[in-house]
Structure formats: C-alpha cells, structure tokens
C-alpha cells in the first residue's frame, strides 16, 4: 500500500514528559515522524503538537488511535486537504557572492520571502508556506548553494465554518 504524507494536530496537556510520550509512541510502535512541532496554546495548560508522518492508510488509522489512547492527548484531528491551512517556516542560509546576489533576491521576491540577515558572502532567507512552496524555493536555491537550513516543521489549523 502506498505511503502518503499525513499531517495530524493534537491538543495535549502542557506537562513535562508529554512530548516524550508522543514521540515514544512513534518509536516504540515503529511509526515514523517526518516533522514535529509543539508549543503552548492560548490556554497555558494546553499545548498543540503537529506531526507529519508518512504511512499507508491502515497504519495512519492505528497511529491516530494509539495517540488518542494516550491519557495526555485531549483531541486529535487530521490536517489534510482544503479544510485546513498548513504552514511551515524555513530559514535558509545561501552563498551569495556578488554575481549571485541579484538572482537570490529575485527568487526571494517571487516566493515573497524576506532577507533576515545579509553578509558579504551570504544571505539568510525566511520563507513561509506549504511544504510544496518551501520545496520549490529550495530547488531554486540549491544550484546557488545552500549553506545551512532550518525548518520548523508543519503547523496548521482546521478552517472555521464560513
């Protein structure tokens, strides 16, 4: 069965060790985590963890059930398709000598990125978007030379009813 990327977001008790319970579940059951992102919500007792995983549908079903079984997981939703918004932020440090600077700036402009740090031989670029957009920026910057890369992993929210 085909393995598809799957984004899930969950509200969890904001207590020590909860992230470890979630990630421990993935490692002990042999599931994989592509990215994980967690932080407190507007309720300080509750955190939101968003995980991207790749698995076939029966395994996804099992992952979701296992996560819901954790006593500290309050609520879990899938974040796939048009009913949700998903974003990731990437900081990309690229080589940028004189002859490349214009090209880099053009790419940043096309993707509505920002230069957040600049030196004689580098830029640090900030880009936000869905995974496809981040991937597209990286594809264009790769030939110029990516020195360092940091990505937050996916976050997202379900859209409210219109």
């Amino acid at each position: 069965m085909a393995e598809d990327k799957h984004v899930m977001t969950m509200l969890v008790d904001n207590q020590p060790g909860v992230t470890s319970r979630v990630t421990g579940l993935f490692s002990s059951k042999g599931f994989n985590i592509e990215s994980i992102c967690g932080s407190p919500t507007n309720d300080p007792n509750v955190s939101r963890i968003t995980i991207v995983t790749a698995a076939n549908p029966p395994v996804i079903e099992q992952i979701e059930k296992q996560l819901r079984k954790l006593v500290n997981v309050i609520k879990l939703r899938s974040l796939n398709g048009p009913k949700s918004v998903r974003r990731e932020l990437a900081l990309i440090c690229v080589h940028a000598k004189a002859e490349q600077r214009a090209e880099v700036l053009r790419i940043v402009d096309i993707f509505r990125g920002k230069i957040v740090d600049a030196g004689l031989e580098h830029f640090i670029i900030e880009v936000t978007g869905e995974e496809a957009k981040i991937q597209a920026v990286l594809n264009l910057l790769k030939p110029i030379g990516i020195k360092k890369l940091a990505r937050t992993g996916m976050i997202g929210l379900i859209r409210e009813p219109k």
Partner: peptide
C-alpha cells in the same frame, strides 16, 4: 522509572 516504564504502563506519574 517514569521514563523507563512509559511504554509498558497504561499511564505513569512522577
């Protein structure tokens, strides 16, 4: 012990 038994308890507490 909470770390050690996380995957073999229904739940655990410190």
């Amino acid at each position: 012990i909470v770390g050690i038994t996380r995957s073999c308890t229904k739940h655990n507490y410190l």
